[in-house]
Every structure is written in C-alpha cells, then in structure tokens.
Design a protein around this nucleic acid. Structure first.
Lengths: 190, 190
DNA sequence: CGTTAAGCGGACTCTGTCGTCCGTTTTTTC
DNA sequence: GAAAAAACGGACGACAGAGTCCGCTTAACG
C-alpha cells in the first residue's frame, strides 16, 4: 500500500495520463485505445501500462475519482432542509455529469467489481440511500426504490439520449424518470 | 432485388444461421463472434459471410425481423378501445421483449442506419406515434414526448437492469418510466 | 558531478475477430 | 447418371488493441 513517492517526471506524466484518459472517455466512451490516450498525454503507451497494469485499472482510476466528486455533492444535498428538493437537485446534478461524460456510465458498469470502484460506489450509495430515505419519509419519492435503482435509471436514461443530435434531450428524459420516481397517485383517467 | 431462389441446402443453412444468431444475440449481446454463431449453426463461418457480407448485415437482419414482430403487436394495440391501456400494454410487451433479448437494444442502436433496420424502425415508429397520440388525446400520456423517446427510454431502462441478478428488476424500472410518462400532476408535497 | 535507480518509449508479441480465397462437395437439371 | 452451377468450409490474410521487453534517458542525492 505505501508506495515510495514518484519521481517528479513520473508524477507529471501520471497526471497527464489521467487527464487525457478522463477527457477521451468523456468525449468518446471507454473504447478509445490506450495508444490514443498515451498520444494525447504525450507519452508512450508503455508509460500508461507502467502505472496501470491493465486498461481496466486506468478506467477504474478515472471513474472512481469522478464518483468521489459526486460524493461531495450528495453530502451537500443532505444539508438542504427540503428533502424532496435535495433529492431532485442531486439527480439533476448527476444527470448533468452523465450527459457531459459518456464514459462514466460505461466505465462504471464495466469496472464495478474492481476494488477501487466498488469502494467508491459503496460510499456513494450509502449517502444516496440517506438522501432517498429522507425524501421517502416526506412522501416526495416512491417507497419501492433504492439507491442503485436511481443511479441505474438516471444513468441509462441519459445513456440512451447521448447519441441524439439534440444536445438537451437528456433533460426531458431526466424529467420523465424524476416524475416516475414520485409516489404513484390516484388518477381520474385510467 | 430479385434474387434467384436459394438451393435447398443453402436455404436451410440460412435459417440455421439466423436462428443461431438470434439466440446468441439474445443471450449474450451482439458481441458474440461470427465464428461462434457459425459453430452453433453447424456451418463454417464463410457460409455466414456468403449470405451477410458483413457482421452488421447479419445483425440488421436479425433485428429488423424482431422489429417486424413488434409491428404486428402495435397494430393490435391500435384496435383496443382504451387508449391509455393500449399504450401501456404495448410498453410492457416491448419491455418483455427487451428483457429477454439483450441484443435487441444493442443491435438496434448499432445498425439504425442500415437500410433494413431504418425502414423497419420507420414503420414501427409511425404506428407507435399513432398509439401515443391517441393516448395523449385522452390525457393518459404527457404531451411532450414522441415515439423515439418512448422506445429509447424503455430500451435503455431495461438495458440498465439486464446485468442485475434480480431477473425481474426491469419490471420495476418499466413501472417508473411508465409513471413518468403520465402527464405531470399538481401535487401537495413539493 | 557522478553514480544509481527510476522512468521512458519504440519495437515486439499475442490474441481475437472480421472478412476472403479456393479446392472440394452437393444439389439441380437434363 | 453426368455436366454445370451453386454452395461449402478450412486455411489464410489483415488489422487492431492489449500488454511486455529492453536498451537508452533523466531525475535525485550525496
């Protein structure tokens, strides 16, 4: 676990690789080749493999970092007094993230069982669970769903919109999902 | 367009290939190799390529066939008197299809612009559009969505559930989407 | 500075998959 | 049942991407 600190150039290259990978994954998904990532980072691809023994390890590093940024956001949402608004605000934020980053959904589902991602996921899920339970307690969210369901539904709905020429389509989809997540109501029209 | 009829053995092999492909795509998605399809069909893989110059052509054939089966179902739904029920019944049917066939969503989005699939899609969409407009007229479905949106939302929601150990998870997701597709209502709780 | 160890990257291997070629087999037809 | 045409499938080619090796370079430290 305790690694000797990296040499200065190695540290710099590591950051470049991480940046290049994050950028390319966001733009084009996880199927970009390691060669291309290395090229954008300005290093040889062997340098990438020196830090990340496997391409999946690189994906996991990028994804788990992004999940951790989300964690901070849920923590903030948990402070908001209105539980329903907090929940929906978070969903919109997560949606925005997915919409600007097609690699997130892809990379996440590809690497869920790598330790790094699994841990980040567990941490995030615990917090989302709180957010949801709070919203469910006030009747703002239907009682039969859990954190996983929300992540998956939002992620995949947006993933479906990602190839559309309409850059804002995903927002309509998030609206639909969000409405669907409210408790079902009695209606006059069947 | 007018091809001379196939020799008896060729016709038989063609059907075997189509069956094997449909089966494997349904079970494991479109990434199964042509070799494996050929093996299951009991032919050499050159035989596959003789009928389908490209793997995508094979996928398109399988997918467009399945879309055509759906078309029949929408036509039936258009007969049903209750527009809302007809719409929801169709969505459940399509959901069932996607849930039992992971290749459908994948193959469809992969080959949308191959003539065969594009045509089938256009035909299906026209009918779904009618189904939706009818349902929208009675207030059973929100007015701001179209046929494409429904297909995509249902397809991707289920796609998100497909890797879960819970075989029935997709039903909960379809419920959520279906609820979200109803017209938004005024609520007491924000 | 000079030594040393960490780091570098081009060239290489390996694997898997799509797609083609061509000598052989099977169907059809007369 | 023999000749012609159609179909077959194993062997082959091509390519792309992941991951390794090793001789050269460069940062770190006394």
């Amino acid at each position: 676990m305790s690694t000797t600190p990296l040499r200065a150039d190695a540290q710099r290259n590591l950051e470049r690789v991480l940046d290049a990978a994050a950028g390319l994954f966001a733009e084009r998904g996880c199927d970009v080749s390691v060669d291309e990532i290395a090229r954008r980072a300005g290093v040889g691809h062997a340098t990438v493999f020196r830090r990340f023994p496997t391409k999946d390890d690189l994906i996991a590093a990028v994804v788990s970092k992004q999940i951790h940024e989300l964690v901070a956001h849920v923590e903030a949402a948990l402070e908001e007094p209105d539980a329903g608004e907090a929940f929906r605000g978070f969903v919109w934020h997560a949606g925005e993230l997915h919409a600007r980053n097609r690699g997130l959904y892809e990379g996440f589902s590809r690497c869920v069982d790598l330790r790094e991602v699994a841990e980040a996921k567990a941490e995030l899920n615990g917090l989302i669970e709180q957010l949801i339970e709070r919203a469910q307690a006030t009747g703002a969210v239907r009682p039969d769903i859990a954190a996983d369901d929300v992540s998956t539904l939002v992620g995949s709905a947006i993933h479906g919109a990602v190839d559309s020429p309409d850059r804002e389509l995903w927002r309509r989809y998030v609206e639909v999902v969000l409405d669907g997540l409210r408790p079902p109501v009695e209606r006059l029209t069947a």
